[in-house]
Design a protein around this nucleic acid. Structure first.
Lengths: 248, 248
DNA sequence: ACCTTATGTCAACAGCGTTGACCTGTTAAG
DNA sequence: CTTAACAGGTCAACGCTGTTGACATAAGGT
């Protein structure tokens, strides 16, 4: 059966470029670009089939000639995102700085398009950009001196941490504005007002909590992970004090 | 803020328990329990107001007497999950072991209800169980000797990392079985077969990759975070070797 | 010029969250 | 014991969503 996928024609087989009523000539690329524009300009909720059709100047159902369903469209968007994120990145030779930069990029890239990030961050695509990233990161770690099993363990923790935080932070960014404001308010209105006798630790740190919980914890968590990895490397390569980075 | 809309009566003020047409007596607890059952048995898509009403033997709109909207309900579900996770846990005095155990519990708890975890792990509920958890973890860190700003920073990184990995791993666990198998296969079928001349680092570590990528990276990431925190503590409290816990 | 068919359009469907109006049983006050 | 208030369950309806089958039409090969 797969009656739905029958509708979709592989890109290479498309020949008859027929303009829509409003004169636009559709294509996969144009649809993905428009979807990204919609996400960026009008928020996560703006991405519906109907609105996308409207933005394209085409009937919503025309999209189903190009994508099986909205999930298929989202994966295409995600793939485009990966490409953009890694576009200009090249390793510098300082493993710790390289991984830090890479992690922050992935995180920032996800926050730029939270909706797509939320739905795709936990998928293994096996596509070109992903493979390139794996190869590069492993190269950085092995080049730094990590033995293979350790390099793989740290690679895994590093990548999944980046993706997990990206999804987490993207998810709260993708909330409807009302809900997002409500969450921010909870820390000020609720946690900052708990009495010291019932909740001494929250009361003692309330000021710091309100400030700190506004930003993402990813930079902190990333630095902690890299610190621990550096300490581990020092141990392995023959015995620093396990405290500071060794590189440079 | 939890400004309950006009329709919602705070639980304490409920007095007239009137049975539904089918004889069920509704309550916040019953609704949350039923929602968790629905999620567990029929997946994340099964949780709709209408289906929940059906499962309860009540009109869907009756739920709006108890929860402002579906988001409010979701937060209640999330808080219930937190409560169940922390039910039997008590700090032992060894801060590092305590946090490790706690992190693993949150992770395991999420995997037990992947669908609920996926929907709620990134929310701030501001409800009883969550507040209790915050208070406890902050207590562990401050008791260990972290000064307040540092305790808050590490609290934030620790909690968000636990939640982020929980959501990430829950998400892939919540995939339809076919899709999950497909993703697992990618590592064996694709990455393990890349030629050494084009992808030397992947080829060199392929054996480790295939093994390591099957399990969650969370335990590794957690230990790295705790190691770095311990090193930080040693620095602050004036100098151990930065390697082991100092407490006691 | 003709026929095939890719592709855009249209109308319709089922399901979603949510709400306002209605009805009815419970409960507190007199 | 009566009664009036009202919490809470029910019903019908709204506007939104993704998706599809039927239809129309223009492009392209022959």
């Amino acid at each position: 059966m797969t009656s739905t996928s029958d509708r979709v024609v592989p890109p290479t087989a498309r020949r008859r470029r027929r303009p829509t009523k409003s004169g636009v000539v559709l294509s996969e690329e144009l649809i993905v670009e428009t979807a990204l524009r919609l996400l960026k300009e009008h928020g996560a909720d703006a991405l519906t089939v109907r609105r996308l059709g409207l933005a394209l100047g085409a009937d919503p159902s025309a999209l189903y000639r190009y994508f099986r369903d909205t999930d298929d469209l989202l994966l295409a968007i995600a793939d485009e995102l990966i490409g953009r994120t890694l576009q200009d990145w090249h390793p510098t030779g300082d493993w710790r700085a390289d991984l830090r930069e890479l992690g922050l990029r992935v995180h920032a890239g996800s926050l730029a398009h939270p909706q797509a990030a939320v739905l795709s961050s936990y998928r293994v695509t096996g596509r070109a950009h992903e493979i390139q990233a794996v190869e590069t990161i492993l190269g950085v770690l092995r080049g730094a001196g990590f033995p293979d099993p350790e390099a793989v363990r740290i690679y895994h923790a590093f990548v999944d941490q980046a993706l997990a935080f990206a999804a987490l932070d993207a998810a709260s960014l993708a909330l409807p504005p009302a809900a997002r404001d409500a969450e921010a308010g909870v820390w000020r209105a609720m946690y900052a007002r708990l009495p010291a006798d019932s909740h001494p630790n929250i009361a003692a740190t309330a000021r710091h909590l309100v400030q700190d919980m506004r930003r993402s914890a990813y930079p902190t968590a990333l630095d902690l992970l890299l610190s621990a990895a550096a300490a581990r490397l020092a141990e392995i390569t023959g015995g620093g004090d396990g405290r500071g980075p060794v590189a440079d």
